[in-house]
Structure formats: structure tokens, C-alpha cells
Amino acid sequence: MAADLLTPYARLPRAYRDRTVLHSTVDAFGRAHWLLRTARGGDDLYDAVVVTVEDGRSEETHLHSVRARFPRLDALPDGGFVVADARRRTGDGGGDGARDGEDDEQVQVFDALGRPSWGFPVGDAIEHLLTDPEGRVWVGYFDEGTCGDDPLSFPGVRCWSSTGAPVWTYEPLPGVGWLVDCYALNVARSAAWAYPYTDFPLIEVREGRPPLVRSTPVRGARGFAVHGDRVVFFGGYDESRSRLVDCRLTDDSIEVVTEGRLLRPDGGEPGRSRVVSRGPRLYVQEEPFTDWAVYDIG
């Protein structure tokens, strides 16, 4: 089985290596970001710093009064950031419960100076949170959200404006029905694609068009890259964790062209990792989550 190698992409500067990495991502413009805790305040609030690396240069943005216990981070085109709590705190007596107004700030929007500007809820059990070049926030949920009692996360995939206005919500499509778990989400400049459990169709969303559904023979991938009429899936269950499946897009389906493996830059098998899918690029980050590598089909 042929193998391709990831290419080193971005590295957290050594000066920050002694801090806890709360989350890390690569944004719609190719900039890598790390969210690091700096200090704890009162009432479970804490301060944090976002370290941004672009073309080998790094800069800091200090965030004040962060609420998220299980943070998901991404950048906005105006230099600000969104930080979401993957688990929504509700005031219904279950879980931790929410203090007055806390649930309204599940997603916090920070300006370019790191000041919290406003917040809004998006639903429980966030698996993926990706912003697009327009600043919209795309969210894919795992099964505790889609099968739980939170109406915001029940659809499985949603899109919000950066001010919290609903932009797009998945509704059952012919041959797909309701989604159980959004395994992978790819957000690019002009489109977004979702890859949900259990039948793993590829759902393409473009503004002004009905969603397009393609059946796939690929199960359990953790990320995918899309370019033209080509889609490449990465990962799978058990021994397939480094699997790479190169496919061709047709009008209503996906045809496998070849299979291989995607390995670390040093040729080793990737271990536990995060995957971010952005158009033609797959970004992969292994523990301890200080380095990003990339696979680009563009």
C-alpha cells in the first residue's frame, strides 16, 4: 500500500511549551492558533493567551474572562476570536447547571484586543467548530447533542453568524434522514461539507443552492480534503487510523480511485491526533499538540 507523508506546517514557539494547551486549530486563512491558559480569576473565569503562528512568525492575543471549560477556538477575519464551550451549561438541574446568563455565553466573541464582546448559545456536544472567511461559525455535533434534549444541537450541523444569528441548519434530506454524529466537517471559502455517522454520506452546502448529498463507500474517516472533483478521506477505525482513500466525485456518489496511508513527516504511524479539514488541506496535530503538519491535494 502506497504511503504519503505529511509536511511540517507550524510549531508552537518553545517559550510557550510549559503551558497547558487548551485547544489548537488552523483557521480559514491558514494561520495556526494555540489557546493557552495564563491565570484563573473568580467564578471559574480565567485569562488565556492565543499564540498565532503564520509563516514562521508568532504573535500573542490575550483573552480576558474566558468561560469555556472544554474550549473550542477559531479566528475571525477582523482579528478577533471565538471560544466555545463544547458542553452547554443549562439551568435545568442537570450536569453542572448554569448561573444566570452563563448559558448565553457558551460561545464568547473576543475582539482583536482580547476583550469579550458578546456571547450566544449554539447547543451541547460540539465536535467541530470552524469559522469561514466571512466570520460565520460552523458547528458539527456528536451524538450526545443530536440524541440529547438540546434543540440547538439536535440537527447535527448548523451555521451561525458571529453575532449568534442562525444562518443554516441541517434538515433531513432524501436518503439521509437525521444525523447521529458529525464525524468530520470541512469548511472552505465558498462551501462546507459534512460527513456524518451512520451511513457516512458527504453533504455539500453552498450558499443559494440546496444541499447536495453523495453516498460514499468510506466509513469512519476523521477528516477529508476536497479539490475540484477529488476528495481524499483520512483515518478510520482500529488499524485504519492512517488510511488515505483517494476518490472521485460524481453528481451523486463518490468512487474510490486508490487507497494508501498518510504518515508523519518522519515516516512513522500517526498516533492520537486532531484533524482540521480546510478545503484541499488536511491539518494533523499529534500529542502533545505543539506541532501541525499538512497534507495538501490542491
Rank of each mutant, 00 (worst) to 15 (best):
Asp150Tyr: 04
Pro166Leu: 00
Pro217Ala: 13
Arg72Met: 10
Arg214Glu: 03
Asp92Arg: 03
His64Gln: 10
Phe154Asn: 05
Pro210Asn: 13
Thr250Lys: 04
Glu269Leu: 13
Met1Lys: 07
Arg222Met: 14
Gly119Ser: 01
Ala194Val: 00
Ser240Leu: 08
Pro196Lys: 01
Arg31Val: 12
Asp150Gly: 06
Tyr16Asp: 01
Phe154Asp: 15
Leu36Thr: 13
Ser240Met: 09
Arg69Asn: 11
Arg206Glu: 14
Phe234Ser: 11
Asp85Gly: 06
Thr163Phe: 03
Arg136Asn: 04
Leu35Val: 08
Glu54Cys: 12
Arg89Ala: 12
Gly95Ile: 03
Glu259Val: 01
Val187Cys: 00
Pro174Leu: 04
Thr146Asn: 08
Val256His: 04
Pro217Glu: 08
Asp143Leu: 11
Glu60Asn: 15
Ser162Lys: 01
Ala184Ile: 00
Ser65His: 15
Trp34His: 07
Asp199Tyr: 12
Gly164Arg: 04
Phe142Glu: 04
Leu76Lys: 09
Arg99Cys: 03
Asp92Glu: 06
Glu105Leu: 07
Asp55Arg: 09
Arg87Thr: 12
Glu144Arg: 14
Ala293Leu: 06
Ser253Lys: 14
Glu144Gln: 13
Leu113Asn: 12
Thr7Gln: 11
Arg261Val: 04
Ala98Phe: 00
Ala293Pro: 11
Leu22Trp: 13
Pro211Leu: 05
Asp111Lys: 10
Asp78Gly: 11
Pro196Arg: 02
Val180Gln: 09
Ile203Tyr: 00
Gly101Glu: 07
Phe29Ile: 15
Leu73Trp: 05
Leu202Trp: 02
Ser162Arg: 04
Ala221Tyr: 07
Gly140Phe: 05
Pro174Asp: 14
Ala84Val: 07
Ala194Asn: 01
Asp78Ile: 13
Arg243Phe: 11
Gly298Pro: 09
Tyr237Cys: 13
Gly41Tyr: 14
Asp149Lys: 10
Leu262Tyr: 10
Thr61His: 10
Phe110Val: 11
Gly79Leu: 08
Thr216Asn: 09
Val21Gly: 11
Leu76Arg: 13
Val66Cys: 01
Pro174Ser: 02
Thr250Asp: 02
Val226Phe: 12
Arg99Ser: 04
Arg14Ile: 13
Leu22Asn: 12
Thr258Ser: 12
Gly208Thr: 10
Ala293Gly: 13
Gly267Met: 00
His62Ile: 09
Ser58Phe: 08
Ile203Ser: 06
Arg57Cys: 10
Glu171Trp: 15
Arg209Asp: 06
Tyr141Arg: 09
Val122Ile: 03
Pro210Ile: 04
Pro201Asn: 05
Asp44Ser: 14
Pro166Trp: 01
Arg243Gly: 06
Gly135Val: 15
Leu5Ser: 05
Cys247Phe: 14
Gln108Phe: 04
Ser162Met: 01
Trp193Glu: 01
Tyr170Cys: 06
Arg281Leu: 15
Thr20Arg: 13
Gly260His: 06
Pro217Arg: 14
